[in-house]
Amino acid sequence: MQKGCIQLYYGDGKGKTTAAIGQIVRCVGHGFKVLVYQFLKEPNSGEVSVIKSLPGVEYIENEGPIPFMFNLTPEQQEFYKEKFQKKFDEVREKYFSGEYDLVVLDEVIDAYNLGTIPKEQLHEMMDKRPEGTELVITGHQYGMDISELTNRADYVTKFVKEKHPFDLGMPCRKGIEE
């Protein structure tokens, strides 16, 4: 791949993961090698089986149920921080190997804002990106300052929700939101 860039998709609107998946499909269509990790998500979302079946894609999977971090006690949050840190260490090692053309860190902005991963480690990944690696990061902003991320990115797209059925109490629907 030519010089890689950093793409950042954030906001409360639907479509961030979908945009990242589109980028994966485009890269695979050109025979590129892709690494994908979805933070704070269980591997039962509809896109996972398709992503894992694509040639050249390595998908790092979370284990066990993943609760909403907002609903946890401080002790439970610490347990999950340690769990996610182990996965993030694995992702970072693979990322810095330089063997991937595209690395997608889905919902990493959420992990960043919730303190689930050390902010400095994500900054380092953005600042010391292997030359030919495209990095895609996604997530919600939750009203927090993410300028440390947007300033480092080459592409920044904000997804703004104007209306969503979840606001009226409709849960996530299989095949649409999950």
Score class of each variant (00 low, 15 high):
T116F: 10
Q77M: 12
I66K: 04
I66M: 14
F68H: 15
L54A: 04
S53T: 03
P55D: 13
G64M: 05
E63L: 07
Y80H: 11
Q77C: 10
D89N: 13
T73N: 08
P67Y: 11
V104Y: 00
K52I: 04
D110V: 02
M125Y: 05
Y80P: 01
Q121E: 15
L102F: 03
Y80W: 13
E93C: 01
D110H: 07
S53G: 11
L122G: 05
F88A: 02
Q77W: 04
F68N: 14
I117H: 00
G64C: 09
P74V: 06
K81H: 11
N113K: 01
K81C: 05
I60K: 10
T116Y: 05
D89L: 08
I66T: 09
Y100D: 00
H123D: 15
S97C: 08
Y95K: 02
V104C: 04
V104M: 01
E58V: 10
V104D: 00
P118H: 13
A111W: 01
E99D: 14
F79W: 07
I60N: 03
K52H: 06
L72W: 04
I109A: 00
P118A: 11
F96S: 03
G98M: 07
E75M: 06
E93V: 10
M69A: 06
V108A: 07
Q76Y: 05
M126E: 03
G56W: 12
E99Q: 14
M125K: 03
M125F: 09
E90W: 10
E63T: 15
E120W: 09
E58N: 09
N71Y: 11
M125H: 09
D106Y: 03
E90Q: 15
E107H: 06
P74E: 13
G98A: 06
L114I: 11
T116R: 02
P118N: 14
D106T: 02
Y95W: 07
L105Q: 00
Q76R: 14
V103C: 06
K81N: 04
E61P: 06
Q85A: 04
A111P: 02
K83S: 10
E90A: 11
K86Y: 10
R92E: 15
E124F: 09
Q76G: 04
H123R: 08
G64L: 03
V57L: 05
G98Y: 08
V103L: 07
I66P: 06
K86L: 09
F70K: 10
L105D: 01
V50I: 14
T116M: 15
M69C: 06
K83F: 13
N71H: 13
P67A: 08
N62F: 08
E107Q: 12
P55S: 06
L72D: 03
G115H: 10
Y59W: 13
Q77R: 15
D101F: 04
I66R: 02
L102C: 03
E124D: 15
N62Y: 10
Q85I: 06
L72Q: 06
F70D: 14
Q85S: 08
D110A: 04
L72V: 03
L102A: 02
L105V: 05
A111C: 08
Q121R: 15
Y95T: 03
K52M: 14
Y95G: 01
